[in-house]
Write a protein that binds this DNA or RNA. Sequence first.
DNA 1: CTGAAAGCGCTTACAG
DNA 2: CTGAAAGCGCTTACAG
Lengths: 338, 338
Amino acid sequence: MSIRIPSARTATIVDVAAEANVSKSTVSLVLKGSPLIKGETSERVLQAAQKLGYVYNRRAGELRGNASNAIGVVINDLMNPFFAEVLIGIERKLVQAGYVVLMAHTHEDLAVQDRVLQSMREHNAAGIMLCPALSTPKSILKLVQSWGIPLTVFVRNLGPGTYDFAGSDSDEGVFLATSHLLNTGHKNVGFLGGQRGVVFNQRTDGYKRALKQKNIPYREELVFNSNPSREGGYQAMKDLLSKHPSLKAVVCYNDIVAFGALSALGEAELIAGKDFALIGFDNILDTAHSNPPLSTIDIHPGKIGEQAATILLERIKNPDAKRMVYSAKPDLLLRQTA
Amino acid sequence: MSIRIPSARTATIVDVAAEANVSKSTVSLVLKGSPLIKGETSERVLQAAQKLGYVYNRRAGELRGNASNAIGVVINDLMNPFFAEVLIGIERKLVQAGYVVLMAHTHEDLAVQDRVLQSMREHNAAGIMLCPALSTPKSILKLVQSWGIPLTVFVRNLGPGTYDFAGSDSDEGVFLATSHLLNTGHKNVGFLGGQRGVVFNQRTDGYKRALKQKNIPYREELVFNSNPSREGGYQAMKDLLSKHPSLKAVVCYNDIVAFGALSALGEAELIAGKDFALIGFDNILDTAHSNPPLSTIDIHPGKIGEQAATILLERIKNPDAKRMVYSAKPDLLLRQTA
DNA sequence: CTGAAAGCGCTTACAG
DNA sequence: CTGAAAGCGCTTACAG
């Protein structure tokens, strides 16, 4: 007859109290470093805890106290290194502040986004960081707000409103890139990749603005839509090459689109930076050693994540603070492709 | 005088019970879909819950019940898309099974790894998935085991032992790649990038094995160490080009190293696939549209994550099952560079 | 089929 | 400086 040995029940505060000959209130106080307890007692309690291999039970503590140290972060496209870099920035900052991250990936799926948000609520998240899936309704703001959970939106904004946000100045970034191309002898430049959405609109706004400043008429057929992926960039560039062979310069929706474009260029035996100029957007790590190294708009992805986390932390501390926004200042970073 | 309105305390099981005129035990039973409760009663409770906007409080439930639905996953190098793809696979599988993921990033730092593991323990994680930071001591296995938390190690193994593991057959993969190069006319091939460690050793074993099979002596100076990064691959290839200009084929430690190498090749005006042959390892998404598209060893990163999660789930369900191991079968995937 | 009671492991006033 | 007591929101035997 075999008996299943229960995994040694871990010691509780009561066990420690018994071991140290104090009440459990005292143990609780010692554990949270209260100055109320006499040094000697405190010492004794700590040793007892050590001896019994005591582990703090967070759920129990939080049940009574009601604060949670978990923060939900929802990402929708981790396949794009940009988001991975942002996530790393977020995670570091949060962990550093003593939080733990409940991470969820939505694949741009609104239904799973709703589900994970709900789940974070059940888990009593101390805050939520959301990079909204494409076409997320603005009502999501009111919803989370009604839960009483601090929220900061990052990278993709949700239109005008009073929510906290961390992202970048897309308009200005693309303006910079387009202007640079125009200033270095290109008579016209196209916009490659990406699809309808807030961010896309901001970026093409910058594009149009740069064109306008040089009195170049905006031509819709020079913006090439695609998925915001390498594959998308590849297809878009092939499309461009066949339809507008005279066009020799392009600013890309983002870096991975630019990588796809680089691939199409290579296939056509065109050398980026010599036969064709292109500039990416984001400055993900990969750009420094692509073939050839990509000129891009640096928005410091890791820093966006860090700032987004900083904002959330501040909001948790101070629920009544006024709106907080971080918008990364874009820097034109010239390497080989333009 | 302003009164801070407490964020509307959310309804509890007791409120629902009162609203529905039943005891809280009944509410609890209904909520977990017990067949014990009469349909009519159940209906009434559900409506009451709905009406009050009841939200299940997981921590409270888990405190008594003792099961948690959070699983910790620790990653060390999310900058490498390979790990991002693995993570996505893990996350999907876990969420699908009703779990939530507590994610932590270690940056290969043993101290933070210890910290996050401890934190996951406090959070009562139902299981832990660990991709060990470089030079993680094997004792980590016993430690987590002593906590009574199911563990599955992934991607990097910890040497012989009886822990659950999901990864790939590195040796075989590199053997395949090296053999292919040798079979297609290259008199010798080098091994580029990566650094001492379990995975590195397995990969170079495959390299040596392929050499041996063709009676080609192994020469240490033909393996070029580097950080397992683009930058590392870039430097290693420059090094190779200057020291061994006659070497024309190389298998790379992984895809990002290969990307760095591609960049160095481009800089030297060498065309990969024509002037120089190289093969990566992993088959991350990016390889399909690099410049030029990279030949590589496909180990199906997403599937590794999924399988790792599947193993953990199984272990949770069945603590006494015997050792589970998944080793991705590597496929040689030829594109442009070899 | 449903209710009363005890308990999960903490924290937090309140006494003293 | 420390203890006794109540309570956080659930679940789980146990009655009936």
